[in-house]
Nucleic acid binder design. Structure first.
Length: 239
RNA sequence: CCCUUUAAA
């Protein structure tokens, strides 16, 4: 098994995934599957990086067959890697493959996917995942909502963004925080709606939430872009 | 630079 182990790893590192796949088949036939759980996860990451999601999914099935527990912490990292490299749809495919494992996704898993979908403008798809969370026993948290709010503002859908903010204010779940407000303020600033941004700023301060350095940065930058240096300086004096 | 998830640059 030791020989299979390092040969397969070497092939993966050399980018020879076809050879690694063939070798894995031989190793399996030789009855070494039971001792290969750590190698299996190594191969999963390698094949995902090589965009070979079909075989990665088969490997995950093997892992389940071995009764190996892969924690969400571990595979969230992999999903996040894909999202960061603009491969959200691949991440969604992989997410579905992860469902064959015994371990259930957690809130972070959904937050990563929701963020990815928002980044490519598929906000409605992101909301579908929000609705699916509950069936997996996951509750959306403030990060989930802030991510969605930001996604809405990025596509200039301020009405829905503000609506979600109001939902947080009235709902019993979680309360909006400085990120929620700053996110929408940033959207307003980018589209030159400084009056709306500033009234949100006042609303935030009025509800006892302390603006952060980023909040001020957003406002000052927004006023600078519309050449209102007087207002920009006025905000600067507040910090 | 980050390196399990959210706001500015």
């Amino acid at each position: 098994f030791a020989t299979y182990n390092w040969m397969i790893r070497s092939f993966c590192q050399m980018g020879l995934h076809d050879l690694a796949q063939v070798l894995f088949g031989y190793m399996r036939s030789d009855g070494h599957l039971a001792e290969s759980s750590e190698l299996l996860w190594f191969m999963v990451t390698a094949f995902v990086h090589a965009r070979r999601f079909d075989f990665a999914g088969k490997l995950l099935s093997e892992l389940r067959g071995l009764g190996v527990q892969i924690t969400p912490f571990v595979y969230n990292n992999l999903l996040n890697e894909l999202v960061k490299s603009n491969q959200v749809h691949e991440a969604v495919i992989l997410f579905k493959d992860f469902l064959v494992l015994e371990s259930s996704p957690d809130t972070w898993t959904f937050n990563i996917l929701i963020r990815g979908l928002c980044r490519v403008g598929e906000v409605d798809r992101a909301f579908e995942f929000l609705n699916d969370m509950e069936s997996f026993g996951c509750s959306p948290d403030i990060v989930t909502y802030n991510t969605l709010i930001n996604g809405l503002c990025r596509i200039n859908d301020f009405d829905r963004g503000l609506g979600l903010l109001q939902e947080l204010q009235s709902g019993s779940g979680c309360c909006p925080d400085v990120v929620s407000y700053t996110s929408i303020m940033s959207g307003f600033c980018k589209s030159g709606q400084l009056e709306d941004a500033y009234s949100l700023f006042q609303e935030m301060v009025g509800s006892g939430i302390k603006p952060s350095i980023i909040t001020f940065n957003v406002l000052i930058d927004g006023y600078g872009k519309i050449n209102d240096m007087v207002a920009a300086e006025a905000v600067y004096e507040k910090m």
